[in-house]
Design a binder for these strands. Structure first.
Lengths: 151, 151
DNA sequence: GTTACTGCAAAGGCTTTGCAGTCTG
DNA sequence: CAGACTGCAAAGCCTTTGCAGTAAC
């Protein structure tokens, strides 16, 4: 019989907090659980809007600070952005991005080939300590292509 | 005898402006020439600070608007950023980025292998029209590694 | 002369900071 | 209890917008 993923993840999250000497608060738990369910690249504002629905007393500041804290301890990532608004990535597994230059959307995609790209000589010659890599393909997403056709 | 690159680039720039029905103004020329000389990923503020030294009457707004205009007509690019401040890329040739997660610096590197990566199946199945690709390697830059050692 | 650009000023949006009250461990 | 966290408010940045005057074509 399988264990509920919700419980499992909550336990892991609390362990992660303890490891980083962070207190487990209702707000942090709520934010974490919100993130687990999402596969977007939400802004702090977006996360806040989703959470206030079930936690009406939470403040935007707490959400924003918590997201920054989570990013610091590696529970989430921040995503490279062209828009000026910081966005977060809840998927820590290696993956890559399709970036629509028209609407700014970022869509994940996976490709084991790309995950294991040999690091080029240039990296080592720069004495850069590589931790991760991501391929970003820029172009026009399907939605934007379709609306372009209609014009 | 070689032609001075400065003249050449200025001519090309003016041609580019005409093609896009943009007027060639002293401010735009100054900004363009400032960009040509730089190999960084400057913010609007950074470009402005450099330019006011020789053009004391130029305004920040003009610099900022001009950079956005240049990005629109493809004279420069905007760079993916983690910092919230928009930064520009004056190198339009295919290249890739080393991103230091500690200090936020972005360093260019070239690798013909990476420029010609086969586009994965996932891209086509998403019906995404790919225009360009960039590999972003995140890690710790040499400077940050050295200062970490001293602590 | 028309059309577009500049510079100034103000507004707007997102992020960060300070602090008193509250809660976790 | 001590130290850390929350929520509120204000301040800080960066970016964008509106407009009158000015300059390019």
């Amino acid at each position: 019989m399988e264990k509920k993923t919700g419980e499992l993840q909550t336990e892991q999250f609390m362990k992660r907090c303890r490891e980083n000497r962070l207190k487990v608060t209702p707000q942090r738990l709520a934010i974490y659980q919100e993130l687990v369910g999402s596969s977007e690249h939400p802004s702090a504002d977006r996360v806040y809007r989703n959470i206030v629905r079930t936690n009406p007393t939470i403040s935007f500041d707490t959400v924003n600070r918590t997201l920054l804290t989570f990013a610091e301890i590696g529970v989430i990532d921040t995503v490279e952005s062209h828009s000026g608004v910081r966005r977060f990535d809840t998927d820590l597994a290696p993956h890559h991005h399709l970036h629509c230059v028209q609407c700014g959307s970022i869509t994940d995609f996976s490709d084991p080939m790309l995950d294991t790209l040999p690091l080029p000589e240039a990296v080592n010659s720069n004495r850069f300590q590589a931790l991760g890599r991501r391929v970003i393909i820029s172009g026009i997403c399907e939605t934007c292509r379709q609306s372009a056709r209609k014009e």
